[in-house]
Design a protein around this nucleic acid. Structure first.
Lengths: 196, 196
DNA sequence: TTTGCATACATACAGCCTGCCTGTTATGAA
DNA sequence: TTCATAACAGGCAGGCTGTATGTATGCAAA
């Protein structure tokens, strides 16, 4: 039965084009930002035509959305790989370690630009929060929830606290590399201050 | 001596045009965002021509910069008026009160869009930080410095801590109005956690 | 195997926008 | 009054986005 094989060929073709477009767009968005990146540039870098782009994505925004989704997923993977190991660490230590993993994973300037600088303005807070809720924020909420249940930190509104800590980490990630240790210290102090 | 009067006339003319442009741009940027606002729209709303705009501003970005500066100054004025009164309040109370004033002053959605959503992406973090350093962040740094000197909060790197708290307040300001009390509560807890 | 349809592109086009450039008018010093 | 300069006005070139139309390839059914 070659049906699967044939269908796969189609799917592969589609996937290959999408992948090339997203990869090329990611690099350009990372380097020059969303607004300064034109679709002709993207398709030239990807080795396809604008027709292909607009066949797969309704608009330039859709391509950016896809890039953000992928970058977010990659980020979550990296963090889970780095901080997902130790389970018996205590809720606060787990939070701090997760935060460190996040800051490390965010050292790529392109990633910072896409996720922290452009995405909020291009996609809007609401949509970016929705994406974030499916990836990084979820684990943060879980960690905080565990910490509160274990009475390791004060009882506070979960979602707001998670968003605020997320903003804290985002801001720390934007710090100059040489200032990062100080930011790390301040973040840790703020989190430790939540202890009951 | 009419020299002053004449010079004033020129200056007034310039100031009037600039004011009209900035006011019109502020409203449009607030409503539709920077990218979706065109210079033809702006000049139509301001009742001038594109020639006037490009005479006063080198590019569209310069107009946005001016809007951000003004909005930042207005914000600082509002906060100072609301929270600058009580001087003998204790450093932590003063911080919390200043934060509340900030959140109140940030309730205007247009202001939020301009300062918190668009500005970081359009101007870049570095330039926005430079602007912020001259307005809101300065008072925050002073407040924190006083609190540390008074040994009311733990000794931590000043600039990073200020930027982190700034990010905290920014995020809280973006919360839905109905969730604001919970955000406020969480922010207060985080700040109180800094006590020695 | 062939036929017919859908998917995956390619290309040309219309409309808009930005920044610049050239001309014109108002202003102020001499 | 004269002349220089600032403050505009209007037009133009280049580029970009999204769309519409045309073409080739894949693939399921007859």
């Amino acid at each position: 039965m070659q049906m699967t094989g044939q269908r796969q060929r189609q799917a592969d073709r589609t996937a290959a084009t999408r992948t090339k477009l997203i990869a090329a767009a990611r690099d350009l968005f990372a380097e020059k930002g969303y607004a300064a990146t034109s679709t002709p540039e993207v398709v030239a870098a990807a080795g396809v035509t604008r027709g292909a782009l607009y066949h797969h994505f309704a608009e330039k925004l859709g391509l950016f959305r896809a890039v953000v989704e992928e970058e977010h997923a990659l980020l979550a993977m990296t963090i889970n790989a780095a901080a997902g190991g130790d389970d018996e660490l205590g809720p606060i230590k787990a939070l701090l370690q997760g935060g460190d993993a996040f800051l490390t994973a965010m050292q790529d300037p392109g990633r910072r630009r896409i996720l922290l600088i452009d995405a909020p303005a291009v996609l809007g807070r609401a949509e970016l929060d929705a994406i974030d809720a499916r990836h990084g924020l979820r684990t943060l909420v879980e960690g905080l929830s565990a910490a509160i249940d274990a009475k390791a930190i004060r009882q506070l509104p979960l979602q707001p606290l998670a968003h605020l800590l997320g903003a804290l980490f985002d801001r720390a990630a934007l710090a100059d590399a040489h200032a990062l240790p100080d930011y790390r210290k301040a973040v840790r102090a703020l989190i430790r201050g939540l202890k009951v």
